[in-house]
Nucleic acid binder design. Structure first.
Lengths: 222, 222
DNA sequence: CGACCTATACTTAGGAT
DNA sequence: AATCCTAAGTATAGGTC
């Protein structure tokens, strides 16, 4: 009461769009601009009837999100979900929550890729069942059937193989010598265990506290 | 060029945040404000090092998104959540919506399966690329891994092959005196194109439709 | 962390190209 | 739809409580 508020005279200052180094200033800026971002998102959805979802992780790793329409309203209309999403690639339902929509799409794409990979793998295994290759072809043939040209190819291949074998043997010899004269090399230890939530960068570690879904323009981290 | 631009005199007007009824005006507004929203998002991520994802569906249904570092990486972070609440007596733990959680889990599982398949496929291709056969196997697949015993096996095999080859060469030399004909060894044709669709369904469970736990404080709103 | 304050930097409606 | 323009409406840096 008694304190007379100092007459504030500062106006907004020009700011470079570059990482704010001061820890606290960055956090304050984050809060303000996050609010601004969500407000903009809200206005966009209201003005244009757009569905949208915004997910933000604070520099300290806390999650915030905003979505329109609300997830709950979506769920009320889609209480049959989940389960195999019936048709995410089919005619998009007018009011599917964007995140769900995106996830379903991604899921479908992944499933397709997975099946494609499996098909390819089966084909490869089929091919693999038969020994193949320039040398193997020759070796698989009965030597009685080979002609001179083939024998020459075989000779060349064997010469090369011998060379490689000799090389490998030398390698082994070297290693053996080294092993006898070298102590144990320490492994690089991963510095796990730092559970402090102060990692602004990748911050994938940390223990995010989670987030709550909120009706439009009401948000708050608990 | 010739057209003199009419002196623009209109400034911004106050706008109620309410659905724009005029179709075209709404579309224009959407484009402008979407750009603005993404710009804000970008500034937020740069200034504060925050990770974020924005997904927007235009009134006409077209999807737009912006993410830092990427939309995908942000959505992936959901799949780690929530970690099962340690205890119901502990401080309230905001909660990811079940549907999104389930979808993210499924997506993660699919992605893992996909990566496993890809790794297997790469391994198969690697094997395929090299000659196969009793001898080639020793050399190619395990060259780096071969120990002395294996090298010895290899040597034995090579010696035998060499003997057989020499024998065969002598045979041929004899025959050459009698005839001048050479036989052609046909190459094994690859029977590609038969993509058998007999993918064995991986044992991994299908979509977990239920949710193992359901904290009492679901959806904490403020 | 918020809320409030002020002066300014930035965004953007409406129109034209 | 993208771009430019202008003027008015907003967001927000920096500060205080």
């Amino acid at each position: 009461m008694s304190g007379a508020r100092k007459k504030t005279s500062n106006g907004r200052r020009k700011t470079e769009i570059k990482r704010i180094e001061k820890e606290q200033a960055r956090q304050v800026c984050f809060s303000k601009r996050r609010a601004g971002l969500f407000k903009k998102a809200n206005e966009l959805s209201l003005l244009c009837g757009a569905q949208l979802a915004v997910v933000v992780f604070s520099p300290s790793g806390k999650p915030f999100s905003y979505g329109h329409p609300s997830v709950d309203s979506i769920l009320d209309r889609f209480s049959c979900w989940p389960s195999p999403p019936p048709s995410c690639l089919l005619p998009p339902h007018p009011f599917v929550h964007p995140v769900i929509h995106a996830l379903c799409r991604q899921k479908s794409e992944l499933r397709e890729q997975l099946e494609a990979e499996r098909r390819r793998k089966v084909a490869l295994e089929e091919v693999l069942r038969r020994p193949r290759g320039p040398v193997a072809d020759l070796l698989n043939e009965d030597l009685e059937e080979l002609g001179l040209p083939e024998l020459d190819k075989l000779r060349t291949a064997l010469v090369q193989i011998r060379a490689e074998a000799v090389s490998r043997a030398e390698q082994l010899a070297m290693k053996t010598l080294q092993a006898m004269s070298t102590s144990v090399v320490p492994r690089i230890s991963s510095n796990a265990g730092a559970l402090v939530a102060a990692a602004p960068a990748a911050g994938s570690a940390g223990a995010p506290t989670g987030f709550a879904y909120m009706p439009p323009y009401v948000y708050r981290l608990v």
